[in-house]
Design a protein around this nucleic acid. Structure first.
Lengths: 98, 98
DNA sequence: TCAATTAGTCAAAAAAAGATGACTACTAAA
DNA sequence: TTTAGTAGTCATCTTTTTTTGACTAATTGA
């Protein structure tokens, strides 16, 4: 990553969601908030480091929001931001396509 | 590249159009047939090798069609396949988005 | 005939992305 | 107090991607 996509939103999406695990993370996040270790177990073949990097970048790019849940066994949750949610229809359109 | 995207069309698109120059090539191809050296001049910072690989892969993935034009100064043209054209509405939706 | 344009290929090097294993720090249960 | 689960980081290694520069081969114009 790292680089500005000269004002083209399509290019922006393609770049921010390219990366080995990002599409899968994003797709799982579509159905609700996600957590680190759960993700690590869900996505087989993945690893801590790569997921950590992917989650950090998705957060930096404003697609995910990281929240610390201060209840009972204190944990961290990632959920789609408004911007992230705005991509849902695009994904749906793509599903229909091919 | 090289790898099957387990049945998710969104992932398929993200993988086939990921690669440093592919989104730009594809976007330029939206407005008409493209040619190798023209592209090389249009996309600054790019290089022959990378463009050649990108074009070959886009062709292999069935998004572009390569045609030899047998007229006058004999040249080669790439244009969107039907599958490539089917992505136009998705791109348009993305443009509106952000 | 020499130079330029077309559309590339090839081998090698450099850069970026991804994976591995060890380690941290906190909490909670046995 | 040892073990397990939470959520990571760090340094290093490996793999993949991208870039560089040299070269090919055909055609066209001066």
């Amino acid at each position: 990553m790292e680089e500005i996509t000269n004002g083209c939103p399509a290019e922006w999406l393609l770049k921010t969601l390219s990366g080995k695990w990002k599409p899968q993370i994003f797709r799982i996040a579509l159905s609700g908030p996600i957590r680190f270790n759960t993700l690590l177990r869900q996505i087989e073949g993945s690893n801590k480091q790569s997921l950590a990097v992917a989650l950090r970048e998705l957060e930096e790019q404003g697609l995910l929001i990281k929240t610390t849940i201060n209840l009972k066994p204190l944990h961290i949750e990632y959920h789609l931001s408004e911007r992230g949610q705005s991509l849902i229809p695009v994904f749906q359109q793509l599903e229909q396509l091919s």
